[in-house]
Simulated assay, not measured.
Amino acid sequence: MNWSFERLSHGLWQPDLVGGYFADRGLCGASGNSGLLRFHDDHTGTVAQEFVDMAFGPRGVRAEVFAFDWRATQFAISRNIDIDGNLVDDGRPGTIVTLDPFDMSVSPWGLAVDTFEAALSLPIVEQSLRPDLFDDWRNAKDVDRLTLTQCAGATVPAFYGGQASIDNFALNDVEVYLSFVAQVWAFGQQHPGEPAPHLRTQR
């Protein structure tokens, strides 16, 4: 997959586990392929980190975000998730994980942060990003490109039975969407088996 990046913001995002790696390369606030993948700036990084801490933290996940895709899946660095997805003690070298608000899954890559750009050319990464679905969704919803504050948010998350389909993804504000997912997920943990309030289901 070929990549083309444009800078949408000059705000820097340098969490401890990532450091200045992407900032030094001028990638903070950059968007690739019309918003398929974007690197956090100081605003989006703060919003996403709060979501990760709130939604994944209670499960023992400690991770610091650096990028996100069109569906607001977070790319992060963690020291307490091994290659099999198990929680381990801190102290190991930080490696890349993805944190998906759609199904609340944690997927380890087992790669260091300085391999991320090279990994973007791997077929497995393309399968994860689903550029064909992104293009089909943009065409169906008449969306030219995503800004740093926009995403394709699921009306019904997968953990409530939603499907990864064009009809289930709507143009949304990232902060609003992540807040929605965090609240719906928290409700489901407190009231297992009960439908979430104000959740529109697909027919």
Rank of each mutant, 00 (worst) to 15 (best):
W3N: 07
W3A: 11
E6N: 12
L12K: 06
W13V: 07
Q14K: 12
P15C: 11
L17Q: 06
G19T: 04
A23E: 00
A23M: 00
D24L: 01
G26W: 14
L27Y: 05
L27M: 10
C28S: 15
A30V: 09
G32S: 15
G32Q: 11
N33Q: 13
N33D: 13
L36W: 02
L37G: 06
H40R: 12
T44Q: 10
G45E: 13
V47P: 00
Q49C: 07
Q49G: 09
E50F: 15
D53P: 00
A55N: 02
F56L: 06
F68R: 01
F68K: 00
R71S: 10
S78N: 06
D84M: 14
G85P: 05
N86R: 14
L87K: 01
L87A: 00
V88I: 15
T95I: 07
T95Q: 09
T98L: 08
L99E: 00
D103Q: 02
D103H: 04
D103W: 02
M104I: 10
S107L: 05
P108V: 04
P108M: 09
P108W: 08
W109N: 09
W109R: 10
L111I: 03
T115N: 14
E117L: 15
S121C: 13
P123L: 12
P123S: 13
V125D: 14
P131E: 11
D132W: 15
D135Y: 10
D135L: 10
D135K: 14
D136Y: 15
W137F: 11
R138Y: 04
R138D: 03
N139T: 10
D144I: 10
L146I: 14
T147F: 11
L148S: 04
C151R: 03
C151K: 02
A152E: 00
A152T: 03
G153E: 06
T155R: 15
T155C: 06
A158V: 01
A158M: 01
Q163R: 05
I166D: 03
F169W: 09
N172C: 07
D173S: 10
V174H: 08
V174A: 13
E175W: 06
Y177H: 11
Y177W: 09
F180K: 07
V181D: 09
A182I: 04
Q183A: 13
Q183G: 07
G188N: 14
Q190G: 03
H191R: 08
P195N: 02
A196Q: 01
A196I: 03
H198G: 01
L199F: 05
Q202I: 12
R203P: 15
